[in-house]
């Protein structure tokens, strides 16, 4: 079902170490870890990195299948990279030859290397997104964008838009599921036919969905205005973000790992 795949791509509630960390710390750590991934030059570096990520993964107690599910969409790119390197990156010993095609040492090395890097990139991102609630994410982004306010970056508004959008994704998914079923009950066919036909068959789904989205947006705007909503400056928050001891430990560890990778050149 469509609803499952979308809602589940993102956040799995829990109370592990990763779940408890401050979203700002997680966002910064994600950035640092991605930088670290691109600094790694040897397989030893990858082992070191996998060891660290693996420990976090085990402590997060996330089921394996979410990682496989999250990796599925990039599988094609990963395979493509692998094959491209195997076939076209030349250098070193020749492992295998068929006519003009050769697989050489450098190709195997680069292919495996790049593939590992891509997979780890996705896994790291998943580890963070699966353990951070969308609302916490938006809060974190708002805080991190605060210093840019004088430059005209509307951090608060961006976060509010994100929060509202995220709030309505499940609602709209549910709505589309309902409308789809209601039209199927009238004999609508969403599954067969060529692409043009299918696109046209989507009209009975899309029109009511847009009508409903506009109605909801309208309702929300009225409700916010009725409560004298105004964004920005002096607004207080229900959940104040506060970094704790563990958050500092987290950020130092991650920075330490990144520096270690850079200076040891592994």
């Amino acid at each position: 079902m469509s609803m499952q795949s979308i809602t589940l791509g993102h956040y799995i509630p829990g109370n592990s170490l990763l779940h408890q960390l401050d979203p700002r710390v997680k966002l910064i750590s994600l950035f640092i870890l991605i930088v670290a991934l691109f600094l790694i030059k040897t397989f030893n570096g990858f082992f070191f990195y996998i060891f660290f990520i693996g420990a976090l993964f085990i402590s997060s107690r996330l089921p394996w299948k979410y990682f496989f599910r999250g990796l599925k969409p990039v599988l094609f790119i990963v395979l493509f990279t692998l094959i491209l390197h195997f076939l076209f990156t030349k250098g070193g010993e020749v492992y295998w030859r068929l006519g003009a095609l050769t697989v050489e040492e450098m190709g195997v090395f680069m292919g495996t290397f790049m593939t590992l890097r891509l997979i780890l990139l996705v896994v790291t991102t998943l580890l963070i997104t699966l353990t951070t609630s969308p609302v916490a994410f938006a809060d974190g982004i708002e805080h991190l964008l605060r210093p840019l306010r004088p430059l005209g970056v509307p951090g608060y508004e961006i976060a509010m838009m994100m929060t509202i959008a995220l709030r309505f994704i499940p609602t709209l998914m549910e709505e589309s599921d309902k409308i789809r079923k209601a039209q199927m009950a009238r004999g609508a066919d969403f599954e067969t036919g060529n692409i043009f036909r299918r696109a046209r068959n989507m009209i009975p789904l899309l029109v009511p969905l847009f009508v409903s989205a506009f109605r909801r947006a309208d309702d929300l705007a009225v409700a916010m205005e009725a409560r004298c909503y105004r964004g920005g400056e002096q607004r207080t928050k229900m959940r104040e973000l506060k970094a704790h001891f563990l958050d500092y430990v987290g950020i130092f560890t991650v920075s330490g790992i990144c520096l270690a990778i850079f200076f040891t050149g592994i």
Binding site: I179, A182, A185, P204
Partner: peptide, 15 residues
């Protein structure tokens, strides 16, 4: 078409 189902708030299905 033989067993017809009218959902709750069916006015939302008009298009």
């Amino acid at each position: 078409t033989k067993i017809a189902l009218l959902f709750q708030f069916p006015e939302h299905q008009l298009f």
